[in-house]
Design a protein around this nucleic acid. Sequence first.
DNA 1: GTCTATATTCCGATAGAC
DNA 2: GTCTATCGGAATATAGAC
Lengths: 199, 199
Amino acid sequence: MQVADTRAAILETSAQLYADLGYSAVSMRDVATKVGVTPANLYHHFKGKDELIREAVGHFFAEKTAPIADLLESQGKDVDRLNLFVEYFVRLLTEDRVFFRLLVRELVDGDEKRLDDLARSVLERPFHLISTLAGPGRSEDERLLSTVSIIGTMLGHALLAPLLPHLPGGRPDHSDASVITGHISAALRRAFHSSAKEK
Amino acid sequence: MQVADTRAAILETSAQLYADLGYSAVSMRDVATKVGVTPANLYHHFKGKDELIREAVGHFFAEKTAPIADLLESQGKDVDRLNLFVEYFVRLLTEDRVFFRLLVRELVDGDEKRLDDLARSVLERPFHLISTLAGPGRSEDERLLSTVSIIGTMLGHALLAPLLPHLPGGRPDHSDASVITGHISAALRRAFHSSAKEK
DNA sequence: GTCTATATTCCGATAGAC
DNA sequence: GTCTATCGGAATATAGAC
């Protein structure tokens, strides 16, 4: 059963633990215990903790972001692909706890090498699509700022979600994927509509 | 000199270390060494590591967010106070490394008690101001979603900043406080302008 | 490929002298 | 209020049997 590929089990389990508790708070013992092997076993599959972290994060993002590439290469108008991306990405951020938390940890604690890997595997293609959409009449700088705003808003919703229950008027369903998606899509429609009218 | 108040030095130094490396990656020894005292000294001022973390974070946010309360209570039109807040908050997020990183760590790793403290000390008042501004004709749910979008966008810019140098077309000055402030303020003007026209 | 056993370093925390 | 000294345990990592 799980005898087949211990390595895969280690990668999956460690990614989940790292997401929940942070890299330095998770020991090799913790991972080994949860997988059901001894700590020495981990060192047969990986050189050490650093390599395990890199491999676990890389493997996880490669798996989760494959659909994004497919989605962005699909047929249809640019604006439809943007809506598809927003829908998929918001769902990933709000419903896949491990994805969101690993993403934030990499953004905050990743070194240059890991940030570079993250840029390539997760955000390079969405950035390119949105950048071409974000105001054809604008300068490159303005388009990039708008792109950061759009992706940043989705990240911000996910980041602020745990705080909402502690704010007056905040209710848990304000962090529901479809609610956030609808809100952001509407905002984007208005933005593109008004920018089209300005021309 | 620093004999006067070791406790304050411990709080300042530990907050900076926690921001840079994360709570679990910073040992009591690390803090003591950087302050220039022995580890045992830390246990004279604080019960243990957990208490030191709580006190350091609480002290830091109390200090940094005092100007926000003043600013939000100032005279003038709501929209002017909003612009002042955006300016101050973006500057805090982009230029105060410790503030931004501690804020993200609390949002990601804080338990319910700490999230509650964070909500009260940092974000409750800005949320209230923006919520009253965000579309007077809209429902309470829509206003809250817009508020999360606005604050989330500022957070998102800061969160994505380290990634920009690794994306094609990204340049460091896209993370400059005044550039981001200008971009967000302009977006807010357009949003409020168009919502006014809709009425 | 997985285990037992262990080396070495570092951790949080305390006792007690000054 | 700060120190020296140290305890008990947990950390990463390795050696070598099976």
